[in-house]
């Protein structure tokens, strides 16, 4: 494990960058429909980036807008997304996507916020100021995917040891480099 990770030729079974349009049918429930109608009012400038993935309303924003959008979604009395369900990083080759799953305890509706980052310079502002619980999720994203969450209070390694070479979550990290005996 001392060698730096060697880039691996792309797996042909996996789609190229950006190929993440959902093709499973849409199944929005009543709350999701209401939210979909409501979001353009709450965030008037971002109508174009709304989409649906299965049963979730998805909003894609740029890294610059992210914190502002998250704060609005949390504080606006019509949305009240006070709970961060999950924060994930997905590697799409040239793009690293950070996915925020939100939930409102009061309104009981849910949505997804996505940010696309270039894989060679993945930098996104931290949302720890909006949801404290993002803390470890962001550290994990930094650990395994190398996403830099600017403004995070302590972006130290969490799951890996200090000085671990490479980002083992990424698709380019060697995977099946062992042989069965």
């Amino acid at each position: 494990m001392s060698d730096a990770p060697k880039p691996q030729p792309g797996n042909p079974a996996h789609p190229p960058a950006g190929g993440h349009g959902a093709t499973a049918p849409e199944r929005l429930d009543a709350r999701g429909q209401a939210l979909k109608a409501l979001l353009p009012e709450v965030l008037p400038l971002l109508q174009a980036s709304l989409s649906i993935a299965l049963d979730e309303v998805v909003l894609t924003v740029s890294p610059e807008q992210l914190v502002e959008v998250c704060r609005t979604l949390r504080d606006d009395p019509r949305t009240r997304f006070d709970f961060l369900r999950c924060l994930s990083v997905v590697d799409y080759g040239d793009t690293l996507q950070v996915v925020y799953h939100l939930w409102s305890m009061e309104k009981r509706h849910k949505m997804v916020v996505k940010v696309n980052l270039p894989a060679d310079n993945p930098e996104v502002p931290s949302v720890t100021g909006v949801w404290k619980g993002a803390d470890w999720f962001e550290r994990e994203g930094h650990d395994l995917y190398g996403v830099v969450f600017t403004g995070h209070p302590n972006l130290a390694p969490l799951l890996l040891w200090e000085g671990f070479p490479g980002y083992p979550g990424r698709k380019s990290y060697p995977f099946h480099d062992y042989k069965e005996w």
């Binding site: 789609p15 993440h20 349009g21 959902a22 093709t23 499973a24 993935a53 299965l54 049963d55 979730e56 369900r85 999950c86 994930s88 997905v90 996915v99 799953h101 997804v112």
Partner: peptide, 21 residues
């Protein structure tokens, strides 16, 4: 099929979520 889903269940320890792409 191609797509993504987030599922969560109530585990003994709390909310267990699976985000599957």
């Amino acid at each position: 099929p191609k797509g993504e889903v987030y599922i969560r269940t109530e585990n003994p320890r709390g909310e267990f979520g699976v985000y599957l792409v």
